[in-house]
């Protein structure tokens, strides 16, 4: 129960959990704040709308524990909506305050473009990052989203993706936080590698015990 996936009523938890298990550690999927507080590696996945996501996190009393967890320096991975929720504010369906872990807002792709941005696209990393170790620069990942981050601090942009002429941050983070706009659990081989890297990182930092069994 070292690796915790936050369940706040969003879909696709099962996919994330199976991908983490495939990467070597059976995760704990929970909506209980105390388990988030005790986590040694925390993953917030998610699909759907920002307003519902934040409402569900608050209703479950998980927003504070997630912030505290991140502030403690333990490894954190956000995926899609779990990444967008880290910013100050989302413009999806009005203006909705989010967790405020990263500065900036979530904005829509310009009207006139085909949205959602759906399918496989490349990620260009600005610098090497341990979560991308062994993953070739320019590898393809699976995206499905209509909104994207606009960080206020350029240093939080770790990787970028181009779609119909718009370049947007597709990997963001700082220190112990890394978060992706794409879905690693749906991105085949390189997505699984990203989860493996995240677990390895958590292990190296002493957060979780060494893998006992390799996934089949």
């Amino acid at each position: 129960m070292d690796v915790v996936i936050v369940d706040y009523g969003a879909g696709n938890l099962r996919s994330v959990a199976r991908a983490v298990a495939h990467a070597g550690v059976e995760p704990r999927v929970t909506a209980i704040a105390a388990e988030v507080e005790r986590a040694r590696a925390l993953i917030v996945p998610g699909v759907g709308a920002a307003e519902d996501t934040m409402a569900n996190l608050r209703a479950a009393g998980l927003d504070g524990p997630i912030r505290d967890y991140i502030a403690s320096g333990r490894p954190f991975l956000g995926v899609c909506m779990g990444m967008q929720a880290l910013f100050d504010l989302s413009e999806e369906g009005g203006e909705h305050p989010c967790l405020g872990v990263l500065g900036g807002r979530i904005v829509r792709f310009p009207y006139g473009m085909t949205v959602p941005h759906m399918g496989w696209n490349t990620v260009t990393l600005r610098d090497e990052h341990p979560v991308f170790e062994g993953i070739p620069q320019g590898s393809y990942f699976y995206f499905v989203h209509s909104y994207h981050p606009r960080p206020s601090e350029d240093a939080t942009v770790l990787g970028e993706t181009e779609y119909e002429g718009v370049v947007f941050p597709s990997v963001v983070g700082r220190e112990n936080v890394v978060a992706t706009q794409f879905h690693p659990e749906k991105s085949g081989r390189w997505g699984l590698r990203l989860y493996e890297n995240f677990l390895r990182l958590a292990r190296e930092r002493g957060s979780i015990a060494p893998a006992h069994t390799a996934a089949t």
């Binding site: 099962r14 996919s15 699976y142 659990e185 991105s187």
Partner: peptide, 11 residues
């Protein structure tokens, strides 16, 4: 769906 999604990591 369960058995497939547990082992194949594409949409």
């Amino acid at each position: 769906i369960r058995s497939t999604a547990d082992q194949v990591f594409i949409p």
